[in-house]
Simulated assay, not measured.
Amino acid sequence: MLAKSLVIFIIIGVVSGFAFGVYLMDVKNTNQLVYVEGPSISLVTEKFDFKKGEEIKIRIVNSGTIPITFNDTSYGLRITGLSGILMYTPISTQIISNLAPGDEIELSWDQIKNDGDAALEGLYKISAKGLDEKGNQVEKSTTVTIWK
């Protein structure tokens, strides 16, 4: 017969493994492109795991039924570490950019940060932010991993 403490530890391990799995499914959301009614943008990368130094192509798609306006030509793209520290924003001009419903724009990141250093291995958050026709903020983000 098994000791009570062993049974308790096994139950705790199974429950915590399940909870961690659910958490990782939320962080690593693989459903990047979802079309909805109303304002929406989607960020699409060709994969989630990249080798160090590999170019990351990012598609920003207006996946809603309302045009989205961006304050500059970078389409509100920001790449941060999970701590929120800004790593990269594309060079842009203050020209207002628009995406009609169903339209998309492709940008890329060569894994070089704004300060000129190469990005280290780790998890990065890619986000884009725009405005709908009523001035409400529309934002979407996804995460990618850079491996050695």
Rank of each mutant, 00 (worst) to 15 (best):
W109I: 07
Y75E: 06
N136R: 14
N114K: 04
Q94R: 13
S127Q: 10
S42Q: 08
E55L: 10
K140Q: 14
I58Y: 10
E55W: 00
T65F: 05
I10A: 14
Q32N: 13
F18L: 15
P39C: 00
R78L: 06
N98H: 12
G76P: 05
I79G: 07
L120K: 13
V14A: 14
D117H: 07
V44Q: 11
G21T: 14
K129F: 03
P39R: 02
I79K: 04
A119S: 07
V36C: 01
I95L: 12
D72C: 07
K134Y: 13
G76H: 11
G130W: 04
D49W: 02
Q32W: 03
I12R: 01
E133A: 09
G116Q: 11
D49K: 12
L123H: 00
G38D: 09
S127Y: 00
V61S: 08
N62S: 12
F50R: 02
S141A: 08
T80I: 00
V22F: 06
P101N: 01
T69K: 12
S40L: 05
F50G: 09
S141T: 00
Q111L: 05
E54A: 12
D72S: 15
W147Q: 13
Q111Y: 03
I66D: 09
G17I: 03
S40R: 14
Q94W: 07
I95E: 15
Y88V: 04
N29K: 14
I96E: 14
D26Q: 12
A3N: 10
M25C: 05
L107V: 09
T69G: 04
K52N: 14
K52E: 13
L120W: 03
V144R: 00
M1E: 04
V15Y: 06
R78E: 12
I58T: 08
Y88T: 04
G76T: 10
A19N: 06
G38P: 07
I146N: 04
N98A: 05
I91L: 10
D115H: 07
K52Y: 05
L86F: 00
K140T: 14
K28L: 12
D26K: 11
V27L: 12
G17L: 04
E139N: 06
T142D: 04
T65W: 06
T143A: 06
I66C: 00
D26A: 12
T89F: 00
I11K: 03
T73W: 00
Y88F: 15
G84N: 02
P101L: 02
K4L: 08
V7S: 06
K148I: 04
V14Q: 02
G81D: 08
W147L: 13
Y35H: 15
N31R: 11
E106T: 15
L131W: 11
Q32K: 15
F70P: 13
L86D: 11
G84R: 07
G21C: 01
E133G: 02
W109Q: 05
G84S: 06
Y75Q: 07
G122H: 02
D103N: 13
E54S: 09
G17T: 13
